[in-house]
Write a protein that binds this DNA or RNA. Structure first.
Length: 829
RNA sequence: GCGAGAGUGGCGGAAUUGGCAGACGCGCUGGAUUUAGGAUCCAGUGAGGAACACUCGUGGGGGUUCGAAUCCCCCCUCUCGCACCA
């Protein structure tokens, strides 16, 4: 048997949808609004089937929502700035803008091939001045609010990409993008003060009920709020006090030493003139070098050096030695800690290494303390703590805070792991930072009316690695009159992290061509938050945190009326091949082209949706793709066989009472399938089980077709038509071309996507007989067909009367009989 | 180490208010049709077993229950994220 003519069918409908503008939304329509957003991709060129999953899920969802009657907004755009364009440009001697444009063209063609539809009237491209003009505008708003600031900071420098990267882009000491070991550099950089929103970013996670638990957990861990106290320890020798942050002030009587980080500002003064000065300096230099090499990031070390100085514990006036050690980080808290070896394992290890005093000042309320073999890190009862002994950790926390605050020796504070977002990049292919450095006036923002600051096209963008952007070598770009005093000044030559571009793009889709403002408040307030956001979990922290931050910022300035951009988030799993992620470098990619050529885009889509639950990783199997193709061909043959009766008149009604057994069976199966499919899709997009339900229906139809005589005018024809009509509509979001073709051949003049989903009567879905399972002592001993919803007494009677069961009971009385309606009877002997 | 998720046939995976384990698909076995088929159709397919009897079976070990893939406790393995965060 030949395969159905997928090529002609698919070409026909792709063209028809484009002509009709199926996904073109009317923003003012009255229907229920549904903003269905895919994470916009980096235009890297060819997409393999692994990439396809995201778009196929999104497209099936958008089409499904259309059929639900929603006004669906499904836009697409391009995250088009970024390093790969520069790398490709260097490799192939082609301008990044040209390379990017070519890739965008290729990818649009691929979407078209897959039958993945978007409202292309709303297309946006982040490297388009029309777009990045407003990215720069957002920068200026942040600057005006004091939330974009410049700081000389120790930053993460990627020696391979020759740029600074954000903390979030450093994975275990390596560059997220290229894997090179990150080095530390001290440079002037622009930061966004995301920490100003730390609490709302944390607290509002609670509102995001439809986000995957793990994404919420990752964000929570990333922000990591710690409540504690900053306690001042006096250092008499230098007449200063050093602040130590701790979450456990209740352990302060166990503080037997104090540790400063290598970069702590007091270090030079502390060691100056001491006999160990040169030794200590050497130690610090050595440890810093180790840190740069990345070693310290993988091997926790308890190295440290005694300064010869002492600090005073403000609670018990004890003199405790001051150490300098790399395990205390300057970037967190105050860069100094009180060492409590009895109750912090790291301090314990440090004390053991250096022979320091270890004291027990907290005992567990229940259970046994690991002390003195290890630190007891739990809370409990304070002991050996002067007048505080006997208090719980919680009581001690408050009492000590009150005492210290009354003497100005400490205060309650909150610290976060979250750091400010470093957004400067010393790269060419990004949105220029709209700031000007004037010798007279200092740093001056570019006036809003002068935006965009255009990225010059003619630039030698080969990175030289001197820590400056390629733009710095372009005299025409750099030289600019100061907007404030008019004197000769210099443009900032860094560009923005591409995550700035993507932190607001979902707002721009509503008015992509607006030249007056970045987005239209009325429209975004109507259409946002995004109803469903779909993308990869790799953006769980970076993109999603930044977008939430920018949304909260814009809301705080009155530009938006909502505080969270994405109501629901769905993160699809990867498609793996041979157990690993598909990637060009591993050579295990599957190209959609040949599948579409031989079996059609519908088959590819069907398999992508069928291969497993969409939130989990799924393995690609070529053989199983074949199975999906077979299924579609079976449906097609069934249609061909009965096409004379599969014409909708719009008048069909079916009276269940008049149906014969086969007809009833198919009729009920159809209702059951409708319920199943709609439930499965609504339940976290479980297209895989929805499709298997549709396959069951198709099997049932095949059996029906073999058993019953089906001719025009017969009841059997109406039942089959009802089944087929339902199947076509349920399957349409997944295999749109073929279903659209069926729909037309069934006599419809408008698109199947303009017609509603089939409606089920749950009563009919139930069936009238069930198989009762009869157990004796929890083992299945018999089955019996009985009418559904039979009363408990009757069910019990049926079970006990069963021949096989009576045999097994051998005339004895059961101890107990458990009846579960419509399921089973368990006879306990 | 901390956090999240997962572990079910030869394979992808179904089944979760506790109630027929293995839906659906792949693969495999047998058959039909066919010049032929890697097309199509039918039947079978967790293991043991002659069996439609029966026994065993959802990573391992305990427990709760008439009944556990599902709930509780302990352990093992894998994936992902974070990782000297005071």
């Amino acid at each position: 048997m030949d395969r159905y003519p997928h090529k002609s069918i698919e070409a026909k409908w792709k063209a028809a949808w484009e002509r009709e503008g199926l996904m073109t939304v009317d923003l003012n329509s009255s229907g229920e609004k549904y903003y269905c957003l895919m994470m916009y991709p980096y235009p890297s060129g060819d997409l393999h089937v692994g990439h396809g999953r995201n778009y196929v899920i999104g497209d099936a969802l958008a089409r499904y929502k259309l059929m639900e009657g929603c006004s669906v907004l499904a836009p697409m755009g391009w995250d088009a700035f970024g390093l790969p364009a520069e790398n490709a440009a260097l490799a192939y001697n082609i301008h990044p803008a040209v390379w990017t444009a070519e890739n965008i063209k290729k990818m649009k063609e691929q979407f078209f091939e897959w039958g993945v539809l978007y409202d292309w009237d709303r297309e946006i491209t982040s490297c388009d001045p029309m777009y990045y003009r407003w990215t720069q505008w957002i920068f200026l708003q942040l600057y005006k609010s004091g939330l974009a600031y410049r700081k000389a900071a120790s930053v993460n420098w990627c020696p391979s990409c020759k740029t600074v990267v954000a903390n979030e882009q450093v994975i275990a000491g390596a560059c997220e993008r290229c894997g090179a070991t990150i080095a530390e550099r001290f440079l002037e950089q622009w930061f966004f003060k995301i920490t100003a929103f730390a609490d709302p970013l944390l607290d509002d996670l609670g509102q995001l009920e439809d986000w995957p638990e793990r994404v919420i957990a990752m964000q929570r861990n990333w922000i990591d709020r710690s409540e504690g106290q900053e306690i001042l320890f006096a250092i008499d020798d230098i007449n200063k006090s050093v602040a130590c942050f701790t979450t456990r002030p209740d352990t302060i009587f166990g503080a037997t030493f104090l540790v400063l980080s290598l970069d702590h500002p007091y270090v030079p003064q502390l060691i100056e003139g001491t006999e160990m000065e040169s030794q200590i300096r050497e130690f610090i230099e050595r440890e810093k070098a180790l840190k740069l090499s990345g070693r310290a990031l993988t091997e926790p070390s308890k190295e440290g050096v005694f300064t010869g100085r002492y600090a005073i514990n403000p609670l018990n006036e004890a003199e405790i030695p001051i150490y300098i050690a790399p395990y205390v980080l300057m970037e967190y808290g105050t860069g100094a800690i009180m060492g409590v070896p009895g109750h912090d394992q790291r301090d314990f290890d440090f004390a053991k290494t250096h022979g320091l005093d270890i004291r027990e000042v907290i005992q567990p309320i229940e259970g046994k303390s690991p002390f003195p073999d290890a630190a007891f890190e739990g809370k409990g009862i304070m002991v050996d703590s002067g007048s505080y002994s006997g208090l719980t950790s919680e009581e001690g926390f408050d009492k000590i805070a009150e005492y210290l605050e009354s003497r100005s020796q400490g205060k309650r504070t909150i610290h976060y792991r979250l750091r400010d977002w470093l957004i400067s990049r010393q790269r060419y292919w990004g949105a220029p930072i709209p700031m000007i450095h004037c010798g007279n006036c200092g740093i001056v923002p570019v006036p809003e009316e002068d935006l965009p600051v255009l990225l010059p096209e003619d630039v030698d963008f080969r990175p030289k690695g001197e820590g400056k952007s390629p733009l710095a070598r372009n005299e025409d770009f750099v030289a600019v009159p100061c907007p404030s005093c008019g004197k000769r000044a210099m443009r900032d030559t860094d560009t923005m992290d591409t995550f700035v571009d993507s932190s607001w793009y979902y707002l721009r889709y509503l008015s992509p061509n607006d030249t007056e403002k970045p987005f239209d408040k009325a429209l975004v307030d109507t259409w946002l938050p995004v109803d469903q956001y779909v993308g990869g979990v790799e953006h769980a922290i970076l993109h999603l945190m930044y977008s939430r931050f920018i949304t909260k910022f814009l809301q705080s300035k009155g530009y938006l009326s909502f505080s969270e951009p994405f109501r629901r988030l769905f993160t699809q799993g990867m498609i793996t091949k041979d157990g690993v992620k598909m990637s060009k470098s591993k050579g295990n990619t599957v190209s959609p082209g040949s599948i579409i050529e031989s079996m059609g885009a519908d088959t590819m889509r069907l398999y992508i949706l069928f291969c497993g639950p969409p939130e989990r990783d799924s393995e690609w199997k070529d053989d199983s793709v074949e199975g999906c193709s077979r299924f579609l061909n079976r449906v097609y043959r069934l249609f061909e066989k009965h096409r004379d009766v599969l014409i909708s008149t719009g008048e069909e009604t079916i009276d269940v009472e008049t149906l014969n057994d086969n007809e009833k069976k198919l009729f009920r199966k159809t209702h059951w399938t409708i319920v199943r499919v709609i439930d499965d899709i609504n339940d976290n997009f479980h297209f895989n089980t929805a499709i298997s339900a549709i396959m069951e229906l198709s099997n049932e139809m095949g059996a029906f077709s073999d058993k019953e005589k089906i001719e025009p005018g017969l009841r059997s024809a109406s039942v089959l038509l009802f089944a087929f009509d339902s199947l076509v509509r349920l399957l349409a979001p997944m295999t749109p071309h073929l279903c659209e073709e069926f729909w037309e051949r069934m006599g419809h003049e408008t698109s199947v996507f303009r017609s509603p989903l089939p409606a089920a009567n749950p009563e009919y879905a139930k069936g009238e007989m069930i198989t009762l399972v009869i157990q004796v002592n929890s083992r299945i001993r018999a089955r019996e067909e009985i009418p559904i919803d039979l009363g408990e007494e009757e069910v019990r009677k049926k079970a006990l009367e069963n021949v096989r069961i009576r045999e097994l009971m051998a005339g004895k009385e059961p101890k107990k009989v458990i009846v579960v309606q419509n399921k089973l009877v368990n006879i306990v002997m």
